Amino acid sequence: MKSQPSMQNEGLASHLLDQYAGRIARSRRPYIIGLSGLQGSGKSTLARVMKVQAEARGWATEVLSLDDFYYARGDREALAQQVHPLLRSRGVPGTHEIELLLSVLSALPLASDKLPVTHPRFDKGRDTRIPPSRWPRITRPPKLVIVEGWALGIRPQFQGALSAPINELERTEDPDGSWRNWVNKQLRGYQPLWRKFDALIVLQAPSWQIVNRWRSEQEQDLLARHAPLALDAVAMQRFLAHFERLSRHALATLPALADTCVEYDDERHVTGLSHG
């Protein structure tokens, strides 16, 4: 059973690269694909497979993960004290250094040995960035850049949608709505990144309940391997509650904004592909 998703990823990666091959080949600058998927949807794995296949086609390719641009733990602690305690947890808009990601994308066309482009890596086990001396160095202009992350392309919610709490976390820890309103406002600052994408591919899960299950299964695997900072079931549900609002919003709105939407069933098998 475990080989099936892998084979499916290889076939899906090939199909997606075929779909955009002409545009990638014609582009005079790095062609940027946003690969958007909620927690546990397999976007990081698919991005890696796409990179291998793209480079086999002769396209120098870089994968950038939105997760690597999380603010360090100390910076998020400052946000927690200055804005809202819920900002100690990484993940929601406002906890990424978007300006840094934009600067990396802007520098890539001129990447060389003399002008290497470095970008951060985030150590989730330690919940902070690795030292800059160990950041990856890019020394060639890529033909293709894949930016992968959760809810890429999502737009802010309408103000009226923020009034009622969506779960117990919001009811008890954000009763006045200040956290969710702040997060929604920060999301406006992510729109310049979305506009950098030449194409947006959305990995569409069946429902929030399935996303919850997928992400919880990932954490159970980490617990079984005794990974540092792995979360038990109660802590995992609290962590996921931070994402529920925007995840539900993404599930409802992102397919209409996507250039390509990949639909999955409960076991992450592709059940549909649509191109906008």
Rank of each mutant, 00 (worst) to 15 (best):
A54E: 08
G34V: 09
G40T: 04
R26I: 01
S27K: 00
R28W: 02
E55Y: 08
R23A: 11
R57N: 07
H15F: 14
A56Q: 15
H15S: 11
W59D: 12
G40Y: 04
A56Y: 04
T45E: 12
R48W: 00
S14V: 09
G37V: 08
I33G: 01
K51G: 04
Q19A: 15
L16S: 01
L16G: 01
R28D: 14
H15R: 14
G11R: 12
R26S: 14
A13G: 13
S36W: 02
N9P: 00
E55N: 08
S41Q: 03
A47L: 06
M7T: 11
R57K: 11
Q39T: 04
G34K: 00
I24H: 05
V52W: 07
V52P: 00
G42K: 01
W59S: 12
Y20I: 09
R57E: 07
S27F: 03
A21I: 06
G22H: 13
R48M: 09
L12V: 01
L12D: 00
E55I: 10
I32G: 03
R28C: 08
H15T: 14
G22N: 13
L16N: 00
G58A: 08
A60T: 13
K43S: 05
S44V: 07
Q19L: 13
A47P: 05
Y31D: 02
M50N: 02
L12N: 01
G22M: 10
G42Q: 02
K43A: 05
Y31Q: 03
I33A: 01
Q8Y: 03
E10D: 12
W59I: 12
S27I: 01
D18W: 02
Q19T: 15
R28Q: 14
I32Y: 02
G40A: 08
E62F: 05
I24L: 10
A54M: 11
S41L: 05
R28N: 13
E62K: 09
Q53W: 06
V49C: 08
S27V: 01
H15C: 10
A54T: 11
M50Q: 07
A21H: 10
K51H: 10
G34A: 07
R48F: 00
R29H: 13
S6W: 12
Q8K: 03
A21V: 07
I24C: 07
M7I: 11
A13M: 06
L46S: 02
S6H: 12
R23P: 00
L16R: 00
A47Q: 06
K51Y: 01
K51Q: 15
R29K: 14
T61I: 09
V63M: 11
V49Y: 01
E55S: 11
S36N: 03
R48G: 10
I33N: 00
R48A: 15
G22L: 13
S14A: 15
E55F: 08
G11Y: 04
M50A: 07
S36Q: 07
N9D: 14
S6M: 11
E10M: 10
Y31A: 05
T45M: 04
M7N: 12
S6V: 15
P30D: 08
Q8T: 08
V63G: 10
E62Y: 04
A25P: 00
G42I: 04
T61P: 03
